[in-house]
Design a protein around this nucleic acid. Structure first.
Lengths: 221, 221, 221, 221
DNA sequence: TGGTAATCGAGACGGTACGTCACGTCTTTCG
DNA sequence: CGAAAGACGTGACGTACCGTCTCGATTACCA
């Protein structure tokens, strides 16, 4: 899942137990924690220096580079370490499950997490480890959502012609908006409920002359 | 609107014409263009060096720093310079207008623009010039969307209890997704139409037992 | 004698009177004066900037470069401008003439002059305009000294086997020392007289066994 | 004695051995050597850039600035490092000792040394480390000369009324002249012998009417 | 229990980019 | 048309980090 465990996790049985002094688990944790502290304090990814991390963690620079090959790798692990566990829908009504998932996703805008995640976005533009692993994490969450939607179609709670991908995108929208941080977002009570209900019910009038539900004709941009 | 025009725009009537050799408009343009080229080539914000910009633009470093005080300022102006003009809805049916706006927003994922915009996201987390100006630009676009939605409520095309802020968020989501770049996005033909129609019509069945439209009871996380 | 006069001195009669605004003689003087002020204030040649000169003189940089091609050229002219006129011996006794010349040379350690001249020394190491012109000025002064010494040999005031070149060097010594500025120098009343009398009379005892006047034998280092 | 040893020399007994990787003695030497090479190649102090030094020495700029705070400091240490050891007179006749000392001083005009030393002269005008330390080195050499002259007075080889300070200045002059480099200097065989003998014996005729030894009357400039 | 070996904090290493300043030239407007 | 003002491309300044490399000191294990 990350650089450190990759290199430390071997076959369970063999466990060749590298000779010499083992690596300090405290140092490991202190380094990750130092990165998160600095990012949460408003240090930009650009301005975050390995030297500052080492100093804040009370650790030598070599101790960091022994574990992570690059600054990017450390950053990714640090960000990955704050991920909440994958939510599992309770299996009640589709509406209840969606509300639960949207609420869980909305937690991502919590104080520290919400300030840290956006730092990684530019790194996701170019192909590479960070992008692939980050994408995997995001897709896992979206798959949970897809599962609930497909179940809703099967149970008849959702219309059979439901555009699942579009629906996933819409239900994820508020969490994604919170990543941007600076745009105004809907607020108030029962936000997850309002979102889910809007997606479920739509906003068009029941019948304003046939418009809204069926496209009158394709519109060219 | 940006650092350069701020310092060059004086009282409209007087135009005192600063003494000495005027700043070269060619250099100005070459610098911005060099930044955009480098970003589009995959250079990360972190790796984008003023020295590379100067070299690419065929310009001295001092010529850059004479115009922008920081790398951030230059980056913001460069990104701001590629903004498309604010779209104006044609004023047909609400559905048509929304499709037009979503399509216009989707154009942001065009080759160069789409690769450049995400670079600025981390800069938007901390208060400052970049955040405020970027926010202003984004809100202007969202206001256009709000206007169309309110008109729909008045004309009866949209339900009177429509949650406008939620709807704005849902309709903006796909464009934002494409900015993030790394998550899977819905694809295929007539994407703007599908998005708008999903938001307009919802996904819930007409009546699977009263669920979907009205919450049975508030759900606690 | 310097860059400016070379290019400005024409035939007296013709005086073609160049068109346009004549060059300001005030600017010329202000520039030289600014250089001397800055050097006397302790600004090293290395730290002395054309920008500072222009600012101090209340002059544009181009006005300087229109007159002198390089910083070195300006520096040389500035230093040359403080040279006292060539001394002419009165033609009395050789001793009196030497004292007069030594005293005139000693004046070079006057406050401002003494602080400025040493700045040029490193520039004299490499061939070039500065070196050649400076060398010419120095040699002119030494030639006056040589003339007096040769006259002394003719009149019998000096010994016929006098090593003129060595004597010139010795008589110039104190002035040269004052260029170094930091070494301890002889002080007290009647310094020129003491120097000349020491060179004239030597320091060896009249007869401590033949030593001192005539070498007992050549000594190898 | 210089910046580096100052900071590395601790209490002789304890030698606390600073933590971390020790500074490379090779880099130290390479840097000094690079400065001397560049100066000897004719690079002026003004034109000598730290970047060129680092490049020539195959060293990072930080490695230089870790050891010397300023360009001046590095220059001084570089120049100080080429100082020949203090000469010790053999203790023969005063004449022999003086010739030995003058010859030793004359060696300073050897190829590289002679081209490097004059670079420092302007730095000696303003108070500061360079001036003080340079002054100390020069005075040590002059003290050796003073010692020989005083011994000569005691042994009777020199006249009891010898003006020691003037004599020191005269005997040092030729070496100083050679440092200045651009003025014409006496040349030929047995130069140290000719200088010493001229100073010892003077140049005045034995008796051209009482002049030369005793001033007829004080002369005012 | 005493080697052996990899770890630790510390910090120097060769580089690269930063943002500033001065060079000598060029291009404006004003007098 | 010259003078001032000041922008131009160039390149060095001294600083800060990068990722690597020694240091002496500190742990574990294995013999």
């Amino acid at each position: 899942m990350n650089w450190v465990t990759e290199m430390e996790t071997g076959t369970v049985t063999t466990a060749p137990r590298r000779r010499g002094r083992p690596r300090s688990a405290l140092a490991q944790k202190a380094i990750i924690e130092a990165v998160l502290e600095l990012l949460a304090e408003g240090t930009s990814v650009e301005a975050l220096s390995m030297e500052a991390v080492a100093s804040r963690a009370g650790v030598g620079k070599a101790t960091i580079y022994r574990r992570w090959p690059h600054k990017d790798a450390l950053l990714f692990d640090a960000v990955a370490s704050i991920k909440e566990p994958l939510p599992t829908p309770r299996g009640g009504s589709v509406r209840d499950d969606l509300i639960q998932l949207v609420r869980a996703a909305g937690k991502a805008r919590d104080s520290r997490t919400g300030r840290i995640l956006p730092c990684m976005i530019p790194e996701l533009q170019r192909p590479g480890h960070l992008r692939d692993q980050y994408l995997g994490m995001v897709e896992a969450r979206r798959d949970v959502l897809r599962g609930v939607l497909h179940r809703g179609i099967v149970t008849g709670e959702l219309r059979p012609d439901t555009d699942v991908e579009i629906a996933v995108t819409l239900l994820t929208a508020p969490a994604v908006m919170s990543l941007l941080g600076s745009v105004s977002r809907p607020e108030g009570e029962h936000l997850p409920e309002r979102i889910v209900d809007t997606v479920l019910g739509g906003i068009a009038s029941a019948d304003p002359g046939g418009r809204g539900q069926m496209p009158a004709e394709p519109v060219q941009g």
